[in-house]
Amino acid sequence: MKAHHAMIMALPLCLVATGTGAAERRQPRAEIFTDLLKCREISDDKGRLACYDRQVAAMDSAAQRDEVVVLDKTELNKTRRTLFGFSFPKLPFLNDGDADDKKASPQYDAMTQIEAKIAAAKSIGNGKWLITLEDGAEWMTTEAVTFRDPKVGMTIEIERASMGSFMAKIAGRPVRVKRVG
């Protein structure tokens, strides 16, 4: 893994993105990571190596205690997909961004929609459905489905809509949904 694709998150909710982009430089950096970077400033080879050894051991220890999490871009995108549809405060490592973020970072890749297979579909009355996706995410229709009932194996497309809502296409037909689990 290349260093510029690595992301390090120190709990509670601190993220360090190593790279050179403007958006990445604005991210808060965990102290444990900045301490590691300071080792580069030591000119004496023996002292620099000792510093690196000490700081890497500290990071490893913190990771074992789940105080630091290291994610590459692929894992970060998987996490974003898993959390799609939930409301969170603005968290730098899940950055759905705003207009300023989009301008600042050409690598902006907010998730605006997902496509998945339906793993389970249960009628909850009044034409509404509880739909479970293959990854375990649960979505509920907030209005009656007046067309073909959702079935296991069907493709569902869910996208962000206005004012924080979500629209799904089931069998090519739109219906409002919300993430419930």
Rank of each mutant, 00 (worst) to 15 (best):
4 H>S: 09
8 I>P: 06
11 L>H: 15
21 G>Q: 15
23 A>E: 15
26 R>A: 08
27 Q>R: 05
33 F>H: 14
35 D>L: 09
36 L>V: 05
38 K>C: 11
39 C>D: 13
41 E>A: 12
43 S>N: 06
46 K>I: 11
47 G>I: 03
48 R>D: 02
49 L>E: 14
49 L>G: 08
52 Y>C: 12
53 D>H: 04
54 R>P: 02
57 A>C: 00
57 A>R: 04
60 D>M: 13
62 A>Y: 06
62 A>N: 05
65 R>T: 14
66 D>L: 09
67 E>R: 05
67 E>P: 04
69 V>K: 11
70 V>C: 01
75 E>R: 12
76 L>C: 12
84 F>H: 03
85 G>R: 02
86 F>S: 14
90 K>W: 13
100 D>I: 10
103 K>I: 01
106 P>T: 08
108 Y>W: 15
111 M>T: 13
113 Q>K: 15
114 I>E: 07
116 A>R: 07
118 I>R: 00
119 A>Y: 06
125 G>C: 00
126 N>D: 13
139 W>Y: 05
144 A>H: 01
151 K>I: 06
151 K>A: 10
152 V>G: 02
153 G>C: 01
161 A>P: 08
163 M>V: 13
169 K>D: 00
169 K>L: 08
170 I>N: 04
171 A>N: 09
176 R>V: 13
177 V>L: 00
179 R>T: 12
